[in-house]
Design a protein around this nucleic acid. Structure first.
Lengths: 355, 355
DNA sequence: CTGAAAGCGCTTACAG
DNA sequence: CTGAAAGCGCTTACAG
């Protein structure tokens, strides 16, 4: 509980309005006076009180725009839970949001949806960027317009945003390799990789992180092939089925992205359930069922709830305080095994579920 | 953004003070009038605004008492980080705290420290209870005095508290069993258990959860013995050393509590590093080093930061809103392997570390 | 360029 | 039992 604006006004012998102008870089104040006030504020280590600002916010309520490729993608169910929770928590402080979603990754769609949000009037933007020059250009434009941006789930290589909340794809690939290594128990293990698309940076990073660790620490693991399934279950089913036919010696499958259900079904049909070790990512309802069944050995989850919750909170705090979040807020790579999902209780205190 | 108290006052044709008396069960109001006001509030779905209440709080600032056995226990380092973060976040709303800590588990010490906190004047209590009738009795007394309590890290069987934040010890034992089962790769695995104390409920639950899963799902795993080390590294070193001498066929060690460093040193001295699979709990600096070395195969962490952060937040919200938290807020059982700790980045977005 | 007033929603003494 | 006023810290029009 530090000093209030009122006390600084008293010390400087001016009105509270003038102190406010000095502290918040508002126009219309004598530069010398401003400097004097800022000095006093620094001396007494003034920090604006959140409760006061929060109440004041209701006069000019904030609105955030959110854009994401969540349609038809179960991963985003928990993301949306996180967003809703944060919005509910902050609704009392006047925060509202406009959410636009799309199916799949289309640069044009993303651009037009963000334009729409801007037209409708938003103070900040939260979205899952596609790594494309047009999006980078848009980010530059937003910076000009003083609209802060937080990316989540996927980051953008070049382009300025306040922060990124999400997975470190290289690290998650490394952890997958560590798991496969442990599961090998020191014996040779022929491993197949199924990836979503070689065009997607994150998928490739999950392969390169995996590859590096296998090469340096688990030489007994032999990567026999890398298949692509375009995140499509049907394609995954066919490719995996064919691969197992051609290579009956495959003992492990590492899936970097989508197509998990298709791959698992192919394994089951060939009678290999439980014989082939499967490591996947994320935890959809289908993945959960395969874990219970013992078909998937382990899955690595990336805290989707937090990926929705945190960006909203961070952006709000930025408006309230000017608090700058870290450049990257990495979510934890949660290894989940059968016993995690057999027991509903073990969800984690940060992920409230409906009771 | 719902209606304000002012609007309800207008609808009821009374003053705001009267509405306040009705809504907050304050004395001195005509019962009929109160009922009428409450009806209106229900009709318009009135919810008090947090920002308003938060600002009002500064007149009668809240103070929480915190008591825990953190002295000389590295597990509590992250717990304290979580507490500090929550306190800093809420300082603007007038919250302060008094923290008393002890070394080990003494019922008398715990009682006297809590008495001291009560004497100094606290509005709510957060602590790690010892499961003992005297503590249960104290909880009853606190309920009489209307002082809400949140337990964390350890719960108390009988006794009323607002909520518990911490591990589900049975579930964590089950997950440890799942890990050992996977590491066995289907072959027989002679496994030794080292526990802290057979007097401690949590330690026993970690054994029984482990036992149940092994029995039903991994019959190839053979539990050869259960040793006790009193959470003491010296004792652990000796017991494990002797056990390995007598039973050179041991292939895995499951450690339910403390003494991890002692046990690991014994394994290293006997030249069994990497040959014996070790599963432990929590992540101290020493555990981290053994994971990097490859001596510990996996450790199960229980979100210590959240165990400090959440209770403070939940108790504050309770005072602000009357929001009742769930009976139990379980923290996630995080399986950590070597690759998690090789890379500092993968900490998790909910655990801000100093950069 | 500066000040005085009103307001955000809720609570709390103080009058009546 | 009820009301009118003042205040929590900050912001924002409106005067001057």
């Amino acid at each position: 509980m530090s000093v209030s604006i009122r006390e600084i006004a008293k010390m400087a012998g001016v009105s509270r309005g003038t102190v406010d102008r000095a502290l918040n870089d508002r126009p219309g104040i004598n530069p010398e006076l401003k400097a004097r006030i800022l000095n006093i504020a620094r001396d007494v280590d003034y920090r604006s009180n959140k409760a006061g600002r929060m109440l004041g916010l209701r006069k000019k309520p904030l609105c955030f725009g959110i854009q994401m490729p969540s349609q038809g993608n179960d991963f985003f169910i928990d993301v949306r839970r996180g967003i809703s929770a944060a919005m509910q928590e902050l609704a009392d402080f006047g925060l509202s949001s406009k959410i636009l979603t799309m199916k799949g990754f289309s640069v044009e769609k993303q651009l037009s949806q963000i334009r729409q949000l801007l037209d409708e009037g938003i103070h900040g933007l939260i979205f899952v960027p596609i790594d494309h020059p047009k999006i980078t250009a848009l980010l530059d434009e937003l910076q000009e317009k003083q609209i802060p941006v937080i990316t989540f789930n996927n980051d953008i290589e070049h382009g300025c945003r306040l922060s990124y909340v999400g997975n470190d794809y290289i690290a998650s690939g490394q952890i997958a390799a560590g798991l496969i290594g442990l599961l090998s128990a020191g014996s040779p293990l022929k491993t197949l990789i199924m990836t979503g698309s070689v065009q997607v940076l994150g998928h490739n990073q999950r392969i390169s992180g995996f590859h590096d660790v296998i090469k340096s620490d688990y030489p007994q693991v032999d990567i026999v092939d890398v298949l692509e399934c375009q995140d499509d279950d049907q394609v995954a089913r066919e490719r995996i089925s064919r691969a197992l036919e051609q290579r009956p010696d495959v003992q492990a499958l590492y899936i970097t992205a989508g197509g998990v259900a298709g791959a698992c079904e192919a394994i089951r049909v060939r009678g290999c359930a439980g014989k082939i070790k499967v490591v996947s990512f994320d935890l959809t309802d289908r993945t959960k069922a395969f874990l219970k069944e013992g078909l998937i050995t382990a899955t690595i989850e990336q805290e989707p709830y937090q990926q929705g919750y945190r960006p909203v909170k961070l952006l709000f705090d930025y408006f309230l305080d000017g608090t700058k979040p870290p450049q990257r807020c990495l979510t934890h790579n949660r290894i989940l095994i059968r016993e995690h999902v057999m027991n509903l209780d073990t969800i984690g205190a940060d992920v409230p579920k409906e009771q």
